[in-house]
Amino acid sequence: MRNLLRLGYLLPVVLILIWGLVVIIHGEDTLREKTFTLLMFVGMASSLNILLGYTGYVSFGHIVFFGLGGYFGFYLLAQHDWSLIPASLAGGAMSAVIAGLLGVAVLRLRGAYFALATIGINEAARAFVTNFGPFGGATGLYVNFSVYEAYGGASQALWSTFTCLWITALATIIASALVKGSRFGLGLMAIREDEDAAMVMGVKAPQAKTLAFMISAFFPGLIGTLYFFKNGNVEPGDAFHLHMSIELLVMVMLGGQGTVFGPMLGAVTYEGLRGYLLTSPLFKSLHLAVSGLFLLIIVLFVPAGVVGWIRHRLPITRRLLE
């Protein structure tokens, strides 16, 4: 806990705290929607970073936990009348359990083989859900408008969902900082650098990796439930979007993998850039190509990401950016 008080860990937490508060006090719908998307990606990218940045396992299937957990939580909401908070927690728990089960098997694979397996898992999950009756098959599930009554009307329900998401994003950042500043996190980073050497030094790699996988899967499940509840429906295409999974990797890399602040910065920058390109008359039709070019330049010339680059160039910032 004492570690959390380090300046570098406090900064992102405080920023998210203020940001959400400002939006809630301001009370405007379009700002809320925009912030919802940004905070969602902050949470997704930060949770991915626990696996990717600290443990060094490249997952292309992070979105599968958003999809499966979100589907499960939404199913409880829509079909069993659970309320939002327990349903989203159950969605997160479901994702963590699935990660635990998968992790035991999949985390034995290293490098590109692991990356490929995560693509396979995502596609298998998507195809399975498309055929799975209780989850509505290819058409998915939706909630009746009347469900929102329990939250004091649709508008109020959207604000409650936003608040939950904001708290989730905060929790993700705090979890990320706690992991990084802990003995467990040191073990993960030892695995990232050299798994065999880490084991010889006493790091229980199989258990540590699985636990990291579970933690990183918990938050997407929670976020997924909130997101689908906000939308009022869920369908396989939205839930298991491989492209989005890769964009999460881009965000983590852009901001700086293995740092607490980086994924958050990367998520906001990437989404901000996309928003700008999509609305700019000049780039509108080419937004994907411009983002791609931008990504290519980052990967080729700034592989440590923004935070990594700043830390390297200006050592004085190291205490501030962790």
């Binding site: 881009v250 993998q257 994907l288 070019l293 990504l295």
Partner: peptide, 25 residues
């Protein structure tokens, strides 16, 4: 990025993917 960690070449080829799809669309 040929000798960089896997993530780099995965993302650099994905960037080319985005460029082709973007221009193609």
């Amino acid at each position: 990025v040929i000798d960089a960690p896997h993530l780099s070449s995965l993302l650099s080829t994905f960037a080319v993917n985005m460029i082709i799809i973007g221009i193609g669309t």
